[in-house]
Write a protein that binds this DNA or RNA. Structure first.
Lengths: 314, 314
DNA sequence: ACAAAAGTGTTCGTCTTACACCCATGC
DNA sequence: GCATGGGTGTAAGACGAACACTTTTGT
């Protein structure tokens, strides 16, 4: 990716490199998955912008992901651009990374790339089986510790912030604040990337550089987007059962939804229409197959699947 | 800003430049304003990233805006990164621009910079005085024309898209789609930047390069943000009347709000608290001064001012 | 028959919207 | 007094959460 850059002995930066990074998300078997490259501390698909060849940044991303993983992307949106001076690259260049979120239907990737469960990296974000164990066993105590490591006003500020982003002291757990949660844990020096050499599973799997942060941001973005744009359908095949749809939404939001109300919400919103065909093999009564109604985009200003509030806890 | 770059005679790009761009927004006298630099085709404050000196992109932005306009920014969030190969720069470098949205209380800027009414650039976005004249007199006919310039399926696709983003044929006008509207007008070759040499006032004032596009995106972002984060208060002084608050929200959303319900929404949401002090000189009964309650951030997951739906039209 | 999952109906409480009305000031 | 804007009450309706219940399959 680009010219070789040696560590600069003078410590000053006089060159810059631009790369694109993709958080490619799919959902299969009720698990949200993210496309990674490499082994121990995997990274997200990343590649240099071809200054002359890539007409747009988005097309650079599509080219790069195709080259590295063999996957053609569908829905793509720009997420964030990272350009801090100290990003742990060991390069003498200033590295600017333009990160994208992409949603695809899962297909087998090629080369060194593979799908991993997104919650491996952020295990405290998955409430589908009740409050996640790492949250109460590991995160909360660490937070308490961090609050008590300071005193007076500083402690109040910390307690306040921890309460807001982790849903404590009367604040609700807000699924969209996944980035704020990660950033707080990072600042605490608690996540493996931030210096700690050991990698306790409760703290989630590490990724290269600041890629885990990008994943946290992507998760928050998807969760928000679900509410008001029909992006779930990018992850489903053309025909699906309502329960299948619900499972995908649950996987991404990290919550369980009330199935009866979910169905109603969906078809009252006019998001889908039945095909008349059915899926047997669901274990019980066959489920009707539905398809996405493209027309809703014009009928309603913000068509999304509508997520409920989370139970307040802690 | 950075090294000089000549037009490259070979037509291939082998160098890159990074800059930060700020859409600095304020509201005064019920008008949303954006900070601009220069005269005829003004630009947004823009400056090169100091590879070695700027620790983060955000700090680069704050430094740059301070240097160019003398203003210290408060709330800042990253908006988008532009990096298309053809951005009309006449430079032989690939120009990457990281755009930020900033909200400030208006103060007099220094040097070559000045505040301009945001709706000068996007006159079809302001519904406060009823449907904006440029929309019906100029935009809609141009859209119709554009649809009819194609035929068959292509015409249907165009009609559909025009309907969605401009709130026609049963679609509601969605205030947050300001970028999509601008992009459509741009693709139509209708806005001055896109080749047209004349500058009809109905089409809005031109800006340098693609800066007007960035303004359109910033407007959409602010409008969305209003709904679910208490960002309005960044634009107000510490104490304000509820009507004052309403005027600011109206200025940004480009709509009129029902005052009685607006008040209730605000203080039912616990966003503000009365100070007991009053503002005479409002023309009628003195209005109580309020202040923002910072605590709401912890109490509610998405505290915003809550905008109503717009009346469907066209 | 029974389990399992799909799908429907109904109630209840909350939030949104609209309308009517009262209050406090300046002229 | 009356115009002007600030501020409150209340009722109708939309919407979400919760619960009970019926339907259709496989074993």
């Amino acid at each position: 990716m680009g010219p070789d850059h040696e560590r600069n002995p003078r410590g000053s930066l006089d060159d810059v490199a631009i790369e694109v990074v993709g958080v490619v998300v799919a959902v299969t078997d009720d698990r949200p998955r993210v496309l990674t490259v490499g082994g121990a501390a995997p990274r997200l698909p990343t590649g240099a912008l071809h200054l002359s060849g890539d007409v747009t940044l988005e097309r650079a991303l599509r080219r790069m992901v195709l080259e590295q993983t063999g996957l053609e992307l569908g829905y793509v949106e720009q997420l964030y651009t990272l350009g801090d001076r100290d990003r742990g690259t060991d390069l003498a260049v200033r590295l600017i990374s333009v990160a994208y979120l992409a949603l695809v239907r899962e297909r087998e990737p090629q080369g060194d790339s593979q799908w991993r469960d997104l919650y491996e990296f952020l295990p405290w974000e998955d409430f589908r089986g009740g409050r996640p164990a790492p949250l109460d066993r590991s995160v909360i105590p660490a937070l308490r510790d961090w609050v008590e490591r300071s005193d007076g006003d500083a402690a109040d500020v910390r307690r306040e912030r921890a309460g807001i982003v982790f849903g404590r002291d009367g604040s609700p757990w807000d699924i969209e604040r996944s980035l704020e949660r990660y950033e707080l844990l990072y600042e605490m020096g608690w996540v493996p990337e931030a210096g700690a050499r050991q990698d306790p599973p409760q703290r989630g799997a590490a990724m290269a550089l600041d890629h885990r942060r990008i994943v946290a941001q992507a998760l928050g973005r998807v969760r928000g987007k679900l509410r008001y744009r029909p992006v779930v359908f990018e992850l489903l095949s053309d025909e699906f059962t309502l329960t299948g749809l619900q499972r995908v939404v649950e996987a991404l939001s990290g919550t369980r939804l009330h199935s009866q109300n979910f169905r109603r919400l969906i078809d009252r919103g006019g998001l889908v229409e039945g095909t008349g065909r059915h899926d047997t093999g669901t274990g019980g009564r066959p489920a009707e197959l539905h398809r996405f109604r493209r027309e809703v985009v014009r009928e309603r200003p913000a068509p999304g699947v509508g997520l409920p509030g989370m139970p307040t806890s802690g």
